[in-house]
């Protein structure tokens, strides 16, 4: 598991690079599906997408989303576009559960299936060393879209492998 705080900044301070070594010290179990699970995803501001590259700490928003560039997939966040209430309206909710509705800005968990990209890496005799997260804003106007590290907030990232996959899991999103 790697937290956002543990991530280092990538090229031009536009990306975040997470150290995730696989296989590590423990021999890898056979797998046919691999997910990059991201918890605590923030969706309070502008919409954005996060492109995932393996072993390319220099990847940026202009890096082609191709297998040759070790592009592994992306997740997209539908944002709330800022706060529209008074002071404190959108403060992070206190933990705990009761009968009230969860506040709309409660963070969520998501994942990117990276099976194909990871298997290509391993088949080439390499090990996974880093995950580069490239956040790009999805503003209303296309001309305003740009690298947006300020939008990238999450709790942690883990790599989870399974033996329950189908061929469809190898399709990048």
């Amino acid at each position: 598991m790697a937290t956002l705080e543990q991530a280092r900044t990538g090229r031009d301070d536009q990306t975040r690079v997470v150290d995730l070594v696989f296989p590590g010290d423990v021999p890898p179990a056979p797998f046919s599906r691999a997910d990059l699970v991201v918890t605590g995803v923030d969706h309070s501001s502008t919409s954005y997408e996060v492109r995932v590259f393996l072993n390319d700490p220099d990847a940026t928003a202009s890096t082609p989303r191709t297998a040759e560039q070790r592009y592994a997939g992306r997740y997209t966040v539908f944002g709330h576009g800022g706060c529209y209430g008074g002071d404190g309206h959108c403060d992070a909710p206190a933990p705990g559960e009761d009968l009230r509705l969860a506040p709309p800005l409660t963070s969520f968990d998501t994942y990117v299936t990276i099976t194909g990209a990871l298997q290509r890496l391993l088949a080439a005799g390499d090990a996974l060393q880093t995950i580069t997260l490239v956040p790009v804003s999805l503003t209303p106007r296309r001309a305003d879209r740009r690298p947006a590290p300020e939008l990238l907030h999450f709790d942690d990232v883990t790599l989870q492998t399974y033996l329950t996959a189908t061929d469809a899991d190898q399709i990048p999103t």
Binding site: T46, Y84, P140
Partner: peptide, 8 residues
């Protein structure tokens, strides 16, 4: 894009 790009 445009209005569709954000929940509000």
């Amino acid at each position: 894009g445009g209005a569709m790009s954000a929940a509000p």
